[in-house]
Design a protein around this nucleic acid. Structure first.
Length: 597
RNA sequence: GGUCCCGUAGCUCAGCUGGAUAGAGCAACAGAUUUCUAAUCUGUCGGUCACAGGUUCGAAUCCUGUCGGGAUCACCA
């Protein structure tokens, strides 16, 4: 039970004792006291006036008196209008400090009683082009969310569904066959995913030329788009792929292999990974039987041309196609199949899709269909919907070449962090390997934090100039605070000041110290909230607040020069815990916290 | 047109299960270094929380409407 819950309970007892009325749940609000007032927690008494039949001030004072007398955690109180501010006894904070262990990962996070098995699908790239900034947001969110859910005691399976088939892959294959001259990643020195992406672009360029040509010859634009020889050839290639033509399959496997090698490198640098890979080439036929079965049971209906539909108009949605008139699957058919497969294969309790908000409608429909099919877990599908990443010059458009490539972006961030580190002399005395490592940690920390600090569901603006700022609300600022605390701790160790770090419960805390402990104390709550709302941004902003809090603490005190050993030990320990919580919070974001920088 | 999301300082963002005088960072200006890392800290400037109603002791927060921005409504994935 945390402090807020204890106080809520005590206050409810107080109301029973003083006014003889039992309150409904949630009538009583305990919240943190705002910085400008004295106190740690505040109870708002306005809702109690009907019961107390007293003025706000009198009610607050009466309850304050009771709590001070009967609740050992409450040391003092003050009343401002209808707000009862409670001051928590130092002994509570000191006990918290001495009883809590931060040494192992999440060791002190209360694991919820019903810890669940969850699968979280993220990344989901196409194999016809390299990853870009939008994928970075997806990957960072997915990876961070999986860590946050793990920290809450859940068992998480990280899954990636690779879209490795379809007309877009055939476009790359065709262009490579025609204009590639046997170019490979080895022969060209290009990363495999970039190489294949280049041929995808090449196809588009040539395809456009053909369309223009046909239009010039008087053909209708739409017809030209359909009848251009290149697109027809690509479609023919897709048919050969689907009939498992050996030559086509071999080419497909070779080029996809290049792409996977490229993706692996990107994933590795970004620091994300997966427990289970799914490939659309293996799953795209799933779901058809389930749809046919649903048709038999009358959940779906068939039109005259043989296509299968579901009518969702009574749910405020539209009619949705499930099987084409030629009997082949569409996107959602496959998703129905893979969802069933996953719940059967792993017995998971929840399936989370990290997918952009342009697919909100799709997932709404998917969940509804599965519900109508009678699957009890249909409501356990969760869509972690996130907004688009925009650039100062507008939206990313691959056609207009305004896409920010993931590999380029990471390289740029690292370069910038190297320049800034060098300017400040931070790399002096480091070996080239050490310098590379630190520069990478900081550059990527800046990128990850910049993206994760924003509420996932909102569209965000990515301004490259601002993202490489290392001051203020940024990843490097938090990393730097952590590194500086480590420096303090090293110094303490050198001077043998940290060898018996038990807490003297008689020392008196000041406002800054209480404020810092309070911030540390809030970490588990933050992780819980982040898991419930699918929002790594809560953890990010928490980490920043904590780092800022520590910087203020540090500037007012010469920790190691403090002469009272008990106080000195306490401050060293508080520094240590703060550093550990910062490191854990950054870890939940997939950001490393270096010991020095 | 239907549905969903967003609108908070010049800019980027917090705050949203209703609570006190709406907060940070950037930018601008003024300061701070005998001390553990100045990638730091302190201060000043900056607001009709898009607008209008409603709910109530109290609304940036909840409801309704309007305006503005975005997404989506394919026999694409």
């Amino acid at each position: 039970m945390n402090l807020e819950q204890i106080l809520t309970q005590r206050a409810e007892e107080a109301v029973v004792a003083l006014y003889g009325t039992k309150l409904d749940a949630n009538v009583l609000q305990v919240q943190e006291t705002r910085k400008e007032f004295v106190g740690d927690f505040t109870i708002v008494v306005f809702p109690l006036l009907k019961i107390s039949k007293q003025s706000p001030e009198a009610t607050a004072t009466t309850i304050g008196d009771y709590l001070q007398t009967n609740c050992s955690e409450v040391k003092a109180y003050n009343v401002i209008k209808g707000f009862l501010n409670l001051v928590i006894a130092d002994i509570f904070w000191l006990k918290f400090m001495s009883e809590t262990s931060f040494d192992h990962q999440y060791g002190y996070v209360k694991i919820s009683d019903a810890s669940a098995m969850k699968m979280i699908e993220y990344s989901s790239p196409n194999t016809n082009k390299p990853l870009h900034l939008g994928h970075i947001r997806n990957n960072l969110l997915g990876y961070s969310l999986s860590k946050i859910l793990t920290a809450n005691g859940h068992c998480i399976i990280k899954a990636n569904l690779v879209n490795d088939r379809g007309i877009h892959i055939c476009k790359s294959m065709l262009a490579w066959k025609r204009w590639g001259n046997g170019e490979t990643p080895e022969s060209s020195g290009k990363k495999g995913d970039h190489l294949v992406g280049d041929y995808y672009v090449k196809f588009d360029v040539e395809y456009k030329k053909e369309i223009d040509q046909l239009v010039k010859q008087g053909m209708d634009k739409e017809e030209a788009t359909r009848k251009a020889p290149l697109i027809q050839e690509a479609q023919e290639m897709l048919r050969r792929w689907e009939s498992k033509d050996p030559g086509t399959i071999a080419l497909w496997e070779m080029m996809n292999g290049w792409v996977y090698a490229g993706f692996d490198a990107t994933y590795q640098q970004l620091g994300v990974d997966f427990d289970r890979m799914y490939y659309e080439s293996q799953t795209y036929l799933l779901g058809k039987e389930i749809v046919m079965d649903g048709l038999k049971r009358g959940v779906f209906y068939q039109k005259e041309d043989g296509s299968v539909w579901i009518d969702l108009t009574s749910d405020g949605l539209d009619e949705k196609l499930l099987l084409r008139s030629d009997g082949t699957s569409v996107y959602i058919t496959q998703d129905i199949g893979t969802a069933c497969q996953r719940f059967e294969e792993y017995g998971i309790d929840e399936l989370v899709y990290v997918v952009g908000n342009e697919q909100n409608y799709h997932f709404q429909v998917l969940s509804l269909i599965l519900d109508k099919l009678g699957y009890p877990w249909a409501k356990s599908l969760k869509h972690m919907s996130y907004g688009m990443v925009e650039l100062p010059e507008g939206k990313m458009k691959s056609r207009e070449g305004t896409v920010v490539d993931a590999d380029d972006l990471m390289a740029e961030m690292i370069d910038t962090s190297r320049e800034m580190s060098q300017e400040l002399g931070k790399l002096d005395g480091l070996s080239p390997e050490e310098a590379d490592k630190i520069v990478q940690i900081i550059g990527l920390g800046a990128l990850k934090y910049f993206i994760l600090k924003v509420d996932p569901k909102k569209n965000m603006l990515f301004d490259p100039k601002e993202s490489i700022d290392f001051n203020g609300n940024t990843g490097p600022f938090i990393q730097y605070t952590h590194a500086r605390i480590q420096s303090v701790l090293r110094k303490a160790a050198e001077n043998n000041l940290d060898d018996h770090l038990e807490i003297d419960t008689n020392i008196v805390l000041n406002a800054k110290e209480v404020s810092l402990i309070h911030a540390v104390y809030n970490f588990p709550k933050t992780i819980n909230d982040a898991a419930e709302t699918f929002s790594p941004a809560l953890v990010a902003n928490y980490a920043y607040e904590l780092a800022k809090e520590y910087n203020q603490f540090y500037h007012d005190y010469s920790i190691l020069r403090e002469e009272n050993p008990a106080v000195r030990h306490f401050r060293i320990l508080l520094s240590k815990y703060t550093a550990q919580v910062i490191r854990l919070a950054l870890d939940l974001l997939g950001i490393e916290a270096p010991e020095r920088m």
